[in-house]
Amino acid sequence: MAATHTVSAFDAELNALKTKVLRMGGIAEANVAAAVQAVMRRDKALAERTITSDQRIDVFDSEISELVTRLLALRQPMAIDLRFIVGTLKIATDLERIGDYAKNIAKRTTAIGTAVPTQPMHAIPRMGEMVLSMVKDVLDALSNEDVEKAVAVRDRDAILDELYNSVFRELLTYMMEDPRTITGCTHLLFIAKNLERIGDHATNMAEAVYYIVTGNRMYNDRPKADVTAEITDPSQIA
């Protein structure tokens, strides 16, 4: 969006929309980081703050929907503007979901208790870091209209999925070995799943950024490395 619009108010509104999305993204990113930290440290206070903070994301989401509706109705955007407005609406939805997952992770802080094997616990912060970098990069890509960064985020999703697969297998093994850990491990499994979902949403956002900037769809056959849906028999686990 190099040149400015003839109607400068339109530019102002588009900038406002962009700022809102980026700020919403910032909050979601922070919430994910806080949620992971809360789980790792069993920090109930932090978890509480994270859960409350999700309301701010929801407010942003509804504000963005309103602004998008207004822009569509009043400005009849075309081409890049149209793609940007529609794309930000999608991104806002993804961010809202990310916020929900962060909240969900934070909620498990108490439930997870202490009866958790320490080994798989190391995988969670690694997944968290990865997811955070994906969310951060995709927001940067949106901010700078950086297609390459968006493509890179999409590609990283495969690695995240691999990581999730290994955590899945590991937790399954622990649960089979020691049924007392089932409660804790199930929670960890959900946390891992939530992080994996956040990664999927980051990928969605990367696709939206790609569409906004180029006008084309990122090719649909994105690599899917999450194979846990196909696992039925524990014996299959190598």
Partner: peptide
Amino acid sequence: TNPVDKRTQDYVTG
């Protein structure tokens, strides 16, 4: 939705 030329883009987006 996706004009190829910059001039078209500039025109349709105002």
